[in-house]
Design a protein around this nucleic acid. Sequence first.
DNA 1: TTTTTTTATGCAATCGTTGTCGGTAACGTT
DNA 2: AACGTTACCGACAACGATTGCATAAAAAAA
Lengths: 346, 346
Amino acid sequence: MGIITIKDIAKALNLSTSTVSRALRGSYEINAETKRLVMEYAERMNYRPNPIALSLKENRSRSIGVIIPEIANNFFSQAINGIESIAYNRGYHVVISQNHESYERELVSTQYLAQRRVDGLLVSLSGESNDLEHFKELQSKGLPIVFFDRVPQDYITHKVTADNFAGAYEGTEHLIQQGYRRIAHLTSPSWLSITYERLEGYKKALQNHGIPIDESYIKYCSHGGMIADEVENAVLELIHHPNRPHAIFSAGDRLTTSCISLIRKEGLRIPDDIAIVGFTNLVSAHLLNPALSAVTQPAYEMGQLATEFLIDLIERPKATIRFESKRLDTRLVIRESSLKSSKNFN
Amino acid sequence: MGIITIKDIAKALNLSTSTVSRALRGSYEINAETKRLVMEYAERMNYRPNPIALSLKENRSRSIGVIIPEIANNFFSQAINGIESIAYNRGYHVVISQNHESYERELVSTQYLAQRRVDGLLVSLSGESNDLEHFKELQSKGLPIVFFDRVPQDYITHKVTADNFAGAYEGTEHLIQQGYRRIAHLTSPSWLSITYERLEGYKKALQNHGIPIDESYIKYCSHGGMIADEVENAVLELIHHPNRPHAIFSAGDRLTTSCISLIRKEGLRIPDDIAIVGFTNLVSAHLLNPALSAVTQPAYEMGQLATEFLIDLIERPKATIRFESKRLDTRLVIRESSLKSSKNFN
DNA sequence: TTTTTTTATGCAATCGTTGTCGGTAACGTT
DNA sequence: AACGTTACCGACAACGATTGCATAAAAAAA
């Protein structure tokens, strides 16, 4: 009574496997009575077609691969839920793979998923990736790829991002409106799209309010802030900067939490000594001490949209497609960490 | 030049597929020179065996399936990292599937993974699961299953858990030692192993300190606290209890965060009005307001250990096995949320 | 009754890989 | 010269499912 195959059904009913196969898919060629017999037996024996055999035959798997930096990041786990919500409705399974911010692991994951014949790939780049040949090659072989969140610039396909520029602009402007002028920016590796876009938003907000840009206020942390020491150094440099910034606009969860920890460890108060606005999808942002003002990305919706794009690519491979780069709005939630204190700066 | 197969190599080198296959696996039956030829060509063409064909033939996939309630839960995402760390070292891939605390989805995930011929299953039960037939059936067909965290009681296989009893005991005793006597317990669905064990630890601590157990202080939230309303009601009942508890021992992240939110929304202070100790794997527990005292589980290690158990089962199916139930120590981290205030109770 | 058409089914190939079996040389042994 | 070994290699089947083609029987048309 192991797992039942089409062959077992054929044998039991004294039919050929072809007949059984066709009966199960309701082919018009098969006698209604035979169909009924087969269907009933299959039902009773709880028959399920072997997806592996199908994958081999049809060279596809009805599944999509997702490659992201870290599951243990609220943004991505929310995005995954969005991805799954669409994928399952459209009959696809989702296979998740982490790159842990490593180019090497991204490569391995990509190869693995391609070998397993996923029908398409949903990718958010690792903090190390600048070479994209592995993706280009697969795409040229016909594997649809959609990027989201951390997208490559010179790559022609659908892309889904948050409106990082606007989000960063809004976050920075909020700090300015609170009266802060010495605003630092703590961010991810310089070559990532999110880094660039957020940086531009930050700069533009400063410019528009006549605040000069101080490059020593801008700190990049490679590996997406995965390496604790690096973030620590960056924050310490800001804290001990000859003109200590009065506010920090931080571009990611790990950066933000490390930043808060360190500021407090150094005996400074938030927002009195240093105000903070983060870019975060932490569900407990409002419970932090102080409650964190933050730009939040529509992670769930981004996952959904990217998945819709991908499945469209998968299911209409011939269609002449105008690739889109969709930006979704972010949302600034103002809480305590960015409120202007009574202290007077400048 | 799409994906290359053994057949292509055979054709190019004027050999049979069998010879190529054997050459690639270094069979002694194949001439050294032929081997070299095949190897080189395969290398040059970047040949990779098709894992799907192998799965079909060998009826296994060199991958293990993981079924957990929610990725977006720090405990589980940490556990996944532990799982992957072992799995990849031993040559297995990891396929992750969420049950979203639903029995139905757990069933679907299980079937799916079984169909995809995972070589084994790593499971933490959904908040709805009390029927385990689907697992039993697969196991009887030879699919190894190891449970971790939320384990079934009457089920013979390896199990890995945190020492929930001891953790809960320690957390509760800490509250008692701080001087609290009216201590409530906010917990998950009653039929889950973690619920029972933590509850017992809580009760035992009270008993050992001569504090009577008040059943109205014990609140179960089904669905693992996924349904916000339910948690909300439970917390409100505690807050408006005729003898309002002075401390709450909370058994999970979602419970704890909701609890903190509500207490603050009701205008009460932590720990002055109500102290809190949680069971959590939040990395930002120390950044909460107030910093959260919590029992932390060794999620990563639990994932690792469960995976080692599973792979042993997979690779030595014949061996007569004494199934183990391993408990790993928890760690109590005391922060502000549980410190005795100056107020005098009773 | 014979021929044609329809209906229902089976055969065999296919996907990529490996195991079983068998075959063919080249060599050594008597 | 006859036979046995050894070293190498290929044909075929199998894994589970689908599908184009062939074909049997039955029905319809001639």
